[in-house]
Simulated assay, not measured.
Amino acid sequence: MLLHLKIIGGLLLFLSLLHVFIPGHLDWKRDLKPLSLMNRQMMQTHMIFIAITVFAIGLLCFTSAEELTTTPLGRKICLGLSVFWALRLVFQFFVYSPKLWRGKRFETFIHVVAVGFWTYMTVVFYLAAGM
């Protein structure tokens, strides 16, 4: 389990760094331009804080895997993270439209990788929680 938590930690650290490229890939400069200043800055700020949160979870897993699996608080954190990533997996199927990825090679690849990653984290954190 420790190895899996460290793998998740490394992958989440990598994912957090990928957020640097999201605005350019999604052409936020053009797409966010019609939004009000408040909505535009809210989108940008939320994306930054998502990246920071993903980084923090990754750092926690990478540096404290043993504590996550051997302490009552760590197991509660793992249970919470399992629920969090399970909900993210649900959103992948029921909030994001298949029109965003279906028939598009790169987007379909990202969708499949995301489903696999969210599932992997849900299961690992659930098992780490001692459930």
Rank of each mutant, 00 (worst) to 15 (best):
L3H: 15
Q41K: 15
K104E: 14
T63R: 07
A129I: 01
L5I: 04
M121Q: 06
T119H: 06
L17F: 13
A128R: 03
M1N: 03
L18A: 11
I110D: 11
L37A: 14
L26V: 06
F109D: 03
L89Y: 01
M47K: 09
S16L: 08
L73Q: 07
H25I: 15
G24T: 12
M43N: 05
H46M: 15
L89W: 01
T71A: 02
R30G: 07
P34M: 11
I52Y: 10
A65C: 05
F55I: 00
V113F: 03
M121C: 05
H19G: 01
V95K: 14
G58P: 04
R40H: 09
S82E: 04
G74T: 02
S82H: 08
L11P: 01
L32T: 06
M47A: 13
E66T: 00
L12T: 01
F94A: 09
A56F: 05
A86F: 13
S97Q: 02
P23H: 11
L3V: 14
W85T: 12
T63E: 06
L35F: 04
G130I: 02
L59N: 09
Q41F: 12
L73S: 04
L68V: 07
L11E: 10
L2R: 09
L13H: 06
W118R: 08
I110A: 12
H4A: 13
A86N: 10
V54I: 12
I8W: 05
L37P: 02
W28N: 07
M38L: 15
K99C: 05
H46Y: 15
L81K: 09
R40W: 02
L60Y: 04
K76L: 11
I48A: 14
T108K: 03
L100I: 11
T63Y: 02
V90Y: 14
A51N: 05
L37Y: 09
V54C: 04
F49E: 11
K29W: 14
L81H: 03
L81V: 09
L68Y: 10
E107F: 13
C78A: 08
F125V: 07
L17T: 08
I48H: 12
T122Q: 06
L73F: 07
V123E: 08
H25F: 15
F109N: 03
I8E: 09
V123M: 08
F94C: 01
T122D: 02
L89P: 00
L73R: 02
L18T: 13
L12M: 12
F106K: 11
T63P: 09
V112I: 14
I7A: 04
F117V: 01
H19C: 11
F84L: 10
S16Q: 00
A114R: 13
L5W: 07
F106E: 11
L12V: 00
N39W: 11
L11H: 07
C61L: 01
I7D: 00
F21K: 05
L59F: 02
C61Q: 06
V115K: 01
T122R: 05
S16P: 00
V113R: 03
L35R: 08
V113Q: 08
F21Q: 05
A51T: 10
L32P: 07
M121G: 05
M42D: 11
F106D: 12
W85M: 10
L60G: 00
K33P: 03
A86C: 11
T69W: 08
L3R: 14
Y126G: 07
